[in-house]
Write a protein that binds this DNA or RNA. Structure first.
Lengths: 160, 160
DNA sequence: AATGAAATGTTATTATGTTACATAAACATT
DNA sequence: AATGTTTATGTAACATAATAACATTTCATT
């Protein structure tokens, strides 16, 4: 079992996990895409925690429950699917992935990434969204996918 | 010769290049660190353009002027040095590097990255800096190194 | 010249991600 | 149910990015 770090005292992660899966089922239904066994398994692995996890680590956790031998490309394909459907995000600064845990309502995602515990808090704030688009606009730049990964130390790690 | 794309009509890149090297000489002097032949060569390669360039591409351009055979680690060591001394930046979203082309004055760096031409505009704006730190603060998060890479299409590419 | 610290050389290895092509499962149409 | 089509998965090899470990050289200072 990896490091546990529940940063919100009121955070019931079991609920959180099942909410992520339910959202996925619903969105796939709506979008007319298939939430297959493998895609579900990868999302479940991601949803186990709010820590970023690398593709090869996902692979290791995937193998025990796989029906046959599994290659990296299987994981990457599932991740591509999840990311396309906004069910997961890639953190470039870590070469790692997290389940999407917020609704974005058309706003960009932003991440607070703790260097110590790898905990990832997902934000989607209007103020940052606006600031980014305003700056881009004044450079006549058309934003498609901002990558906002704010690295630092979370409050829990700071205390210890 | 790689794709040229001078986005500023008033941008004399020869001046820009030599300014980058001059800044590096000065800063290394001040910091009491050595601006060696290899470090200079790597920075010169980066300063050739405002496009992001990968370590192995740098290596290819490095080899012709190298005194002996050169391995990847040589490039990475030079890059580490340049980044530590704020003379270059790593763009995580591209696994690539650019010469630092602005003064930051204590503000975080932000990048506008064109997906089409790989052109990188380096910003260091107060408004984005503030927005980031404000959001982090309200999550009791201590920022150390924000990674702000705004991907999209630059004005030049949009026209074409 | 002798010393110690920083920089570089050399080789191998690890980590991350993709290509190409074969097979199979799901879906729609007859 | 049989057929063809699309979508998903299996399999193996490959490509790209980055680091580890240890030997050697360079440089500034004694």
């Amino acid at each position: 079992m990896e490091q546990e770090n529940f940063h919100f005292s009121d955070h019931n992660h079991e609920n959180c996990k099942s909410a992520i899966i339910k959202t996925a089922e619903k969105r796939c239904e709506e979008n007319g895409v298939r939430f297959t066994r493998q895609r579900r398994m990868v999302l479940e692995i991601l949803a186990e925690s709010h820590q970023a996890i690398g593709a090869y680590d996902i692979l290791e956790r995937f193998k025990p429950n796989a029906k046959s031998r599994t290659a990296p490309v299987t994981i990457y394909r599932a991740l591509d699917f999840l990311i396309e459907n906004n069910l997961a995000h890639r953190l470039s600064s870590l070469n790692a992935f997290v389940a999407c845990s917020t609704t974005h309502n058309g706003l960009d995602a932003q991440f607070l990434v703790c260097k110590k515990c790898q905990y990832v808090a997902e934000l989607s704030t209007n103020s940052l969204h606006k600031a980014i688009h305003k700056e881009a606009e004044s450079a006549e730049f058309t934003v498609t996918s901002p990558m906002i990964e704010i690295r630092g130390i979370c409050s829990t790690c700071k205390k210890s």
